[in-house]
């Protein structure tokens, strides 16, 4: 049975679009989950069951690590630290907000990913062309998210997107070392989730302490 390229592309684009728009303390976990599911058809086509397993473990691992980091951060004594969801710079008065700019970036990423997909062959054993669109799109969106980051959470989301998209690209690459490469690339997502969760846990403890002090 042939691979339906539009179906693969649609799943990846939906996942990347969600990842571009998501905000808040659970943003990294949501991003990892959506991208793991969105990239799974591509991973299944080129990496088979092990490929899906790599993405699944990375996506669900990111959720578990984010929660574990958050729980650990809340239990430790509070020290002055970084709140990952608070913007590091004051927003200037502008016509479009950060989400609108991200949406524009996601639209710009479509022709870029399309060009890469149809012009850059990937693969060691046999070059594959035209099927790179979902991964190229998710990677481009990840870099745009990094460049437009306003806080640490945004940076972690960008790293997660780059990690999972590159992991999928490694599966497309085929060859003897594709699975090992995918594992290594996808390992960044749980780490980013752990750090974001840890920082969120620590800052949530500070908020609780402040509320208790006020009461």
């Amino acid at each position: 049975m042939g691979v339906s390229a539009p179906l693969l592309a649609a799943a990846g684009v939906v996942a990347a679009a969600v990842a571009m728009m998501v905000d808040g303390r659970r943003a990294v976990a949501i991003t990892a989950l959506f991208l793991a599911v969105g990239m799974a058809p591509t991973a299944a086509t080129f990496g088979g069951a092990p490929g899906v397993a790599v993405l699944g473990v990375s996506g669900f691992g990111a959720v578990a690590f984010a929660w574990a980091g958050w729980a650990a951060g809340r239990r430790l004594p509070w020290v002055a630290g970084l709140d990952p969801s608070i913007p590091a710079l004051a927003p200037s008065g502008q016509l479009f907000g950060p989400r609108s700019i991200r949406a524009f970036g996601a639209a710009v990423a479509v022709p870029i990913a399309s060009w890469v997909s149809f012009n850059v062959p990937v693969g060691q054993v046999a070059a594959v062309q035209g099927l790179l669109f979902p991964t190229a799109y998710a990677w481009t969106c990840g870099v745009i998210r990094l460049l437009l980051a306003r806080n640490v959470e945004d940076l972690a989301v960008g790293v997660t997107m780059v990690s999972l998209s590159t992991g999928t690209a490694w599966l497309l690459r085929s060859g003897t070392d594709s699975l090992a490469g995918a594992v290594l690339a996808c390992a960044l997502a749980p780490i980013a989730a752990l750090i974001a969760g840890w920082l969120a846990g620590r800052s949530s403890r500070r908020r609780i302490a402040a509320i208790e002090a006020d009461a």
Partner: peptide
């Protein structure tokens, strides 16, 4: 943002 994007570019080159 910038150094992160730079390392993302290096990661993307790897496949």
């Amino acid at each position: 943002r910038v150094a992160g994007s730079g390392t993302a570019a290096l990661i993307a080159a790897s496949p």
